[in-house]
Simulated scan of single mutants.
Amino acid sequence: MKKIIFIIVIIILVKPVLPVLEYVMNYEYISKVLCINKDKPKMHCNGKCHLMQELAKASDAEKPISSDKKSISPVFEVLFFEKIDSFTITPIHFGTKEKVNHSYSNLYFYLNSDTVFHPPIFIS
């Protein structure tokens, strides 16, 4: 399984370089027969024009069909939407007086004394 994946990855990576490899391997044939500018030796093209055409064909073949420039329109996708029904800001009051509840009776009593409690002395 790993070998098959490795072969597929190699093919995908080498596919754009195939025209260049073909140019290097068949340099003599391309420069003498397939070159478009062979009647203009001052340009020193040597088949590079043919290589550029092949690279353009390879890049056009890699483009997806749906990427037509005529039908490009902005597409907005909403991933998450939650409607907020109401939003209110509650005012913050500092230094407000406590509300007095008259029905509450405070039965707690605290005597603040300065004396310290000592247990009774036990005489045996």
Score class of each variant (00 low, 15 high):
Met1Arg: 07
Lys3Val: 04
Ile4Cys: 10
Ile7His: 08
Ile7Pro: 00
Ile8Cys: 07
Ile8Ala: 11
Ile12Tyr: 13
Val14Pro: 00
Lys15Pro: 00
Lys15Val: 08
Lys15Cys: 08
Pro19Trp: 00
Pro19Phe: 01
Leu21Ile: 02
Leu21Lys: 02
Leu21Tyr: 01
Leu21Cys: 02
Glu22Phe: 02
Val24Asp: 05
Met25Arg: 14
Met25Thr: 13
Glu28Trp: 03
Lys32Tyr: 01
Val33Gly: 02
Val33Phe: 00
Leu34Gly: 04
Leu34Glu: 15
Ile36Met: 12
Asn37Ala: 07
Pro41Ala: 02
Cys45Pro: 13
Cys45Gln: 05
Gly47Ala: 03
Gly47Ile: 00
Cys49Ile: 03
His50Arg: 14
His50Leu: 03
Gln53Lys: 12
Glu54Gln: 11
Glu54Thr: 03
Glu54Asp: 11
Ala56Cys: 11
Lys57Leu: 05
Ser59Leu: 05
Ala61Arg: 09
Lys63Trp: 01
Pro64His: 07
Ile65His: 07
Ile65Ala: 11
Ser66Ala: 13
Ser66Asp: 14
Ser67Leu: 09
Asp68Asn: 13
Asp68Pro: 02
Lys69Leu: 07
Ser71Val: 03
Pro74His: 01
Val75Thr: 12
Val75Asp: 06
Val78Phe: 00
Phe81Leu: 12
Glu82Cys: 05
Lys83Ile: 07
Ile84Phe: 03
Ile84Tyr: 06
Ser86Pro: 01
Phe87Thr: 10
Thr88His: 07
Ile89Gly: 03
Thr90Glu: 15
Pro91Lys: 11
Gly95Gln: 05
Thr96Asp: 12
Lys97Thr: 06
Lys97Val: 01
His102Thr: 15
His102Gly: 11
His102Leu: 13
Tyr104Arg: 09
Tyr104Trp: 04
Tyr108Thr: 15
Phe109Ala: 06
Phe109Tyr: 01
Tyr110Lys: 14
Asn112Tyr: 08
Asp114Tyr: 01
Val116Tyr: 09
Phe117Ala: 11
Pro120Ala: 04
Pro120Asn: 04
Ile121Met: 10
Ile121Glu: 13
Ile121Phe: 06
Phe122His: 09
Ser124Glu: 07
Ser124Met: 05
